[in-house]
Amino acid sequence: MAIVIDVGRTWIDVQGKEHVRIGAAGGDFGGSYDDCGNQAFYCMTGGLEIVIPKAMPMKEWTYHGLYCKNVAKLGSDSYRIMCQSPNYRGRPTYTYSLSRGVISIESSPVASYNKFELRGDRGLFSPGNNP
Rank of each mutant, 00 (worst) to 15 (best):
D35N: 12
C36S: 00
Q39V: 15
Q39F: 15
Q39D: 15
A40T: 10
A40N: 12
A40M: 11
F41Y: 14
Y42N: 04
Y42R: 00
C43W: 09
M44T: 06
T45R: 06
G47M: 12
G47W: 09
G47D: 05
L48T: 06
E49H: 02
E49Y: 07
I50N: 12
I50V: 15
I50H: 10
I50C: 13
V51R: 00
I52D: 04
P53N: 00
P53F: 06
P53E: 00
A55K: 15
A55N: 15
A55P: 11
A55M: 12
M56Q: 04
P57S: 07
M58V: 13
E60H: 13
W61K: 01
T62Q: 09
Y63R: 06
H64T: 13
G65Q: 02
G65N: 06
Y67F: 13
Y67N: 12
C68R: 08
C68L: 03
N70E: 11
V71C: 02
A72I: 07
A72Y: 08
K73H: 02
G75N: 06
G75M: 13
G75F: 10
G75C: 10
S76E: 14
S78W: 03
Y79L: 00
Y79V: 09
R80W: 04
I81V: 01
I81F: 01
M82F: 03
C83W: 01
Q84W: 13
S85Q: 00
N87D: 10
R89E: 13
P92H: 14
T93Q: 14
Y94K: 04
Y94H: 08
T95A: 07
Y96I: 12
S97T: 12
S99G: 07
S99L: 14
R100C: 07
G101L: 05
G101V: 10
